[in-house]
Nucleic acid binder design. Structure first.
Length: 722
RNA sequence: GGGCGAUUAGCUCAGUUGGUAGAGCAACUCUUUUACACAGAGAAGGUCACAGGUUCGAGUCCUGUAUCGCCCACCA
């Protein structure tokens, strides 16, 4: 027996070497897998941020996917798991800008676009290996020969192609729209980068002709000409829709126009409001509805425009008090109340968001187009029907409800972003002319300065990673993918967009099943965050307890779609399990001989019952895994190995092995060996390192014949033992 | 405000066609017997949030209440 079994299992001495063996074997690439494999199984990895490091959330994702992929590979599927990294455009650019500001005191405008992009690429070069090395440390059996990066040449070209195709189909258009403008960062930001801060402000009640209007933002009110109330509000029954009213306002007399709209809340304030379409989302929609003019009051730096008269050029925060003073002097302030509300601020700069109207690019989700199968549909209908038909299924049913609710209410998607790092919009302008193409049409043409929302390219990910728009073998074999696995928090951003993009460009679903895992929280159920300092680094934990322990600790008790908790104690517990397996192997190796495996035996009743119990476990574990309930399968195999195999079968066998019945001894040895082999196979997807290490000892050092030869990684998943 | 969940042992959670309540940690008792003390044996611990209903039978299905959580939209 190998001397290494005389001491406890030592992960740090084995893991890196084992991973190297797997990688050198080439079996991560399905093209190299041995045997006849008629069916394929493919997953794309949700690409982690290229500049990031592994956290427990991504560790959980890698563990789940690797477990499924290893299981399918052992079952005989031609199994492909595609690795990749994401440019995380906004986050990465912000990070590099911050570094440059700190080191050189320069802004991106000082550097210029080409120089900033060069710096970003250089930064990514220095950071990208960190995350890739950490994925390897996890034991992830990813096919590195197919590695993709969202901004590499192949993917960039595919994104351009996709944009142009959708433009040609009439689904991409340019239009005005309110955006979240961050005056401090001089950029538009997406809804999910907004942080709402509770703030104590004043609610001003102002006399607006015969009405009293409540506002927390008097500085936006200069251009307000429309006064809106509910049509059923009896207090204002005397005023007719579109009635004109002369009244005195901040900078003199104006003509106001009454609008009756049922969207007004009669209960709030006085039930009357004026609207500022340029700087308020809801007001913008009202203005669109009634085709009202829109006027800009605040400029891109947060200062008042000439429409504010004497206040022009002032910052809004400074102007507010002065405007109120003036209104008060004119007797237009009715009263002032304290008011607590949520204010939108930019996550990165901390600046107050100022809604502004800008020209943006959109995807139209309600316009008809001709689908690949010749039928007419809209993106929104296609996205809804795909799920209602069952072409895509959610492993956890409640997410289907969420998805459908979201998809049915889908609005046009704003895909342009005012940053520099990303897939630049392939549109060129010269005067009033516009051309949609990748390369410059010639002299005097200037490219649109915006880049695409990162979710645009992400939506294409399942097929750009397989070589699209070329009609590659990979695309034919591996698309649609079998499964997407991610956190449920990106359902609307990513999962839905993949269904949209794949449906439009390929006429197929991107994946057949959607598996959402929950958030990983700390031992007390709190979110993992930098400010709490409660992050548990999976790689650190692996150094202490072994990656196998980290992996199985993450997935034990983790029902799909439900948040789970992880703490160091749990990981420590599963380190003990790894050692348990180690010692089971040691015991079996001490008792089994080569001939025990090669020759037939007559089994006792007890031996037969033990094999029956093993078979029952194989069936249960296989059934759970087929339903992607890897947590239940893990529980079953864990319980079997420790409390049935080790505590009962193995303990009982001691009596036989110490006895004198040689025939029974040989049969028992065969039984122990058979159960060990089968257990290792069932455990391998979960704890690939320790099981592979034991496997290699069984085949090499002990000289025992392995039915499957070579590596456990490609051994056949256990069938019921006859 | 709209939507979706959760509530089961001290803690974390399973419980898949309704059929005598389960696991892992933690705590308790005993045991150092060459696979493993990173262990074994044993005992303890629950009105399954609450109130109704359907049923021979409900943790499971239905209705309502309470508390907690998440997502979306945010009120001038």
């Amino acid at each position: 027996m190998d001397q290494k079994f005389l001491k406890p299992y030592s992960p740090d001495e084995t893991e890196a070497a084992i991973y190297k063996r797997w990688e050198n074997s080439g079996y991560f690439n399905p093209d190299n897998l041995p045997g006849d494999r008629p069916d394929t199984f493919s997953i794309v990895l949700p690409p982690p941020n290229v500049t990031g490091t592994l956290h427990m959330g991504s560790a959980l994702m890698l563990a789940i996917e690797d477990i499924i992929v290893r299981y399918k590979r052992m079952q005989g599927f031609k199994t492909l798991w595609i690795p990749g990294t994401d440019s995380a455009a906004i986050a990465t650019q912000a990070r590099v800008e911050k570094d440059i500001q700190k080191a050189e005191g320069k802004s991106r405008h000082d550097l210029g676009r080409p120089e900033l992009l060069k710096r970003i690429d250089a930064f990514i070069e220095t950071t990208k290996n960190t995350i890739i090395d950490q994925m390897r440390a996890m034991g992830a059996s990813l096919d590195w020969s197919r590695y993709a990066y969202t901004m590499d040449d192949k993917r960039y070209g595919a994104v351009m192609h996709a944009f142009i195709k959708m433009y040609e189909a009439g689904l991409i258009y340019r239009g005005h729209r309110i955006v979240n403008w961050d005056p401090k960062g001089q950029t538009t930001i997406s809804d999910d980068e907004i942080v709402y801060e509770e703030r104590k402000d004043k609610l001003y009640y102002l006399k607006y002709g015969p009405f009293i209007i409540g506002t927390s933002r008097p500085e936006t009110k200069f251009g307000d000409k429309y006064v809106v109330m509910h049509p059923d509000d009896k207090r204002y029954a005397q005023y007719a829709d579109r009635q004109q009213i002369e009244l005195e306002w901040i900078n003199g007399p104006i003509t106001a126009i009454v609008i009756k709209d049922p969207g007004v809340d009669m209960e709030f304030g006085t039930g009357v409001m004026t609207i500022t379409p340029w700087h308020d989302m809801a007001d913008f929609e009202l203005a669109e509805k009634y085709d009202l003019p829109k006027e800009q009051v605040i400029d891109w730096y947060g200062k008042l425009l000439p429409i504010a008269g004497e206040f022009a050029g002032m910052k809004i925060t400074d102007a507010r008090e002065k405007i109120i003073e003036k209104l008060a002097s004119k007797g237009l302030v009715e009263k002032i109340e304290d008011y607590t509300h949520n204010v939108a601020t930019a996550e990165r700069t901390g600046g107050m968001i100022e809604p502004q109207i800008k020209l943006q690019w959109f995807i139209n989700v309600t316009k008809e187009y001709t689908a690949k199968d010749g039928t007419k549909t809209t993106l929104r209908d296609m996205m809804t029907q795909t799920v209602e038909n069952g072409d895509v299924t959610f492993l956890v049913e409640r997410f289907e409800k969420q998805y459908l609710h979201w998809a049915k209410n889908l609005r046009d998607w704003c895909i342009s972003r005012q940053i520099w790092f990303g897939h630049r919009i392939p549109v060129w302008y010269r005067g009033n002319d516009m051309k949609v193409q990748v390369d410059s049409p010639g002299d005097g043409w200037e490219q649109d300065s915006d880049v695409l929302d990162t979710w645009f390219s992400a939506g294409l990910w399942t097929f750009t990673t397989l070589g699209w728009p070329d009609e590659t073998e990979d695309l034919k074999k591996y698309h649609p993918t079998a499964l997407i696995e991610s956190g449920y928090d990106i359902l609307p951003f990513w999962i839905a967009r993949m269904i949209m993009m794949s449906g439009f460009h390929l006429g197929t679903v991107p994946f057949k099943t959607i598996y959402f895992h929950g958030l990983v929280r700390d031992g007390q159920g709190r979110k993992i965050s930098k400010s709490l300092g409660n992050n548990i680094d999976p790689v650190d934990m692996a150094k202490k307890y072994g990656m196998d322990a980290v992996r199985i600790a993450l997935i034990m008790g983790m029902a799909p779609g439900t948040d789970s908790k992880i703490d160091e104690n749990k990981i420590r517990g599963y380190k003990n399990f790894a050692n348990k397996i180690w010692n089971i192997a040691r015991f079996v190796l001490e008792n089994v001989e080569k001939t025990d495996i090669e020759e037939p035996h007559t089994l006792s009743k007890e031996d037969a019952d033990d094999i029956t119990e093993l078979n029952r476990t194989v069936r249960e574990v296989t059934r759970h895994l087929d339903e992607y309930r890897i947590d239940l399968a893990a529980d079953a195999v864990y319980h079997y190995v420790w409390h049935t195999f080790a505590d009962q079968v193995l303990e009982r066998s001691k009596t036989v092995m110490n006895g004198t019945d040689v025939v029974a001894q040989r049969a028992t040895a065969w039984k122990l060996y058979t159960i060990l082999i089968t257990s290792l196979k069932m455990l391998h997807p979960y704890m690939p390192f320790v099981t592979e290490e034991i496997w290699s000892s069984l085949s090499a050092q002990a000289g025992l014949p392995m039915k499957d030869g070579g590596m456990l990684m490609i051994a056949r998943w256990p069938a019921v033992v006859e």
